[in-house]
């Protein structure tokens, strides 16, 4: 199979189970959103997928081949993450050159152009860059390196609003020019909601959503009105959360509404991705 298969990945740190039997597939040329609260296990999963750490159980296959200790498969992925794994004393331009040498393909022209757009000084030492510029350097590499699978773990960490905007623009441009698979792991859901075609949600080490963004939002509703009528209407539906203000109530439903009659004073709206995410991952508590 073309693409990446994640099979039953389990990871423990001590007695704590970080990932519990995670399994999904990544198709070629799609933009994925990997969502989850802090500590949900997103970074650990991405680290396992790129062989930075090993899983206790399960395996990762890229185009049908186990990625573990395989140059061919590892050389077709790039993980940009918070940790800095580049030599501290190296200059940015030197790091670009090394990346070009070790990966089979790097668009140096694009990297230099992006460095200019982001005002990144390529003659500067990596260790002397601010957090934001370290992120920028790694993002530039991620967009310039020629691999089919790019993982971005919190890609806009430390970036100001202008740079965030510029990054998303360049990401889309790069993806349009040269379609490949991106997995964006972030807690800034609103910023990427329109970018991601497919959503993966991890909660407490388990994969709870693995679906196309459009299909998910099709069945995400906010039912609001007088408490009694709302409660009556949502009875038997998959309610994932609710908000209450005096006698008014909003219930969040994830799933089909069937053909039940809508009471006069109850209104039905669609939920956005952020609201859906919050309600799915707050541990079943109501925000009342």
């Amino acid at each position: 199979m073309k693409g990446i298969e994640v099979k039953q990945i389990t990871k423990r740190y001590g007695k704590k189970v970080i990932l519990n039997g995670i399994g999904f597939e990544l198709e070629p040329n799609k933009i994925y959103g990997l969502l989850g609260r802090n500590g949900a296990g997103k970074s650990t999963l991405l680290n396992i997928m790129t062989d930075r750490v090993s899983a206790d159980d399960g395996e990762i296959r890229l185009d049908g081949v186990d990625i573990q200790d395989n140059d061919q498969q590892l050389g077709n992925m790039y993980l940009m993450s918070e940790v800095d794994l580049y030599p501290k004393a190296a200059k940015v331009s030197q790091i670009f050159k090394w990346t070009a040498q070790l990966y089979n393909g790097f668009d140096m022209e694009l990297a230099m152009k992006l460095a200019q757009k982001f005002d990144l000084d390529v003659k500067a030492q990596f260790s002397k860059l601010s957090t934001g510029y370290r992120t920028i350097m790694k993002l530039i590499i991620a967009l310039s390196v020629q691999v089919e699978f790019i993982f971005l773990d919190e890609p806009v960490l430390g970036l100001d609003a202008n740079h965030r905007d510029l990054f998303y623009k360049e990401l889309v441009q790069s993806y349009s020019d040269n379609p490949r698979t991106f997995v964006i792991s972030t807690h800034l859901i609103e910023e990427v909601a329109q970018l991601i075609e497919h959503v993966l949600v991890i909660d407490q080490g388990r994969l709870i959503i693995d679906d196309e963004t459009e299909d998910i939002l099709k069945n995400a509703y906010m039912i609001s009105g007088a408490e009694e009528e709302v409660d009556q209407y949502v009875d038997g539906l998959n309610v994932i959360g609710s908000d209450k203000l005096a006698s008014l109530k909003a219930s969040y439903v994830f799933g089909e509404l069937d053909n039940r009659v809508i009471p006069d004073r109850v209104s039905i709206d669609k939920m956005d991705l952020q609201t859906l995410f919050i309600n799915l991952t707050n541990g079943g508590q109501n925000n009342e």
């Binding site: 200790d69 395989n70 590892l74 050389g75 992925m77 794994l85 580049y86 030599p87 990346t99």
Partner: peptide, 16 residues
Amino acid sequence: YERFEFFIQNGISRRT
């Protein structure tokens, strides 16, 4: 360790 960090970031296996 630092060498490993750099190589795994660049998609090079431990074996190689």
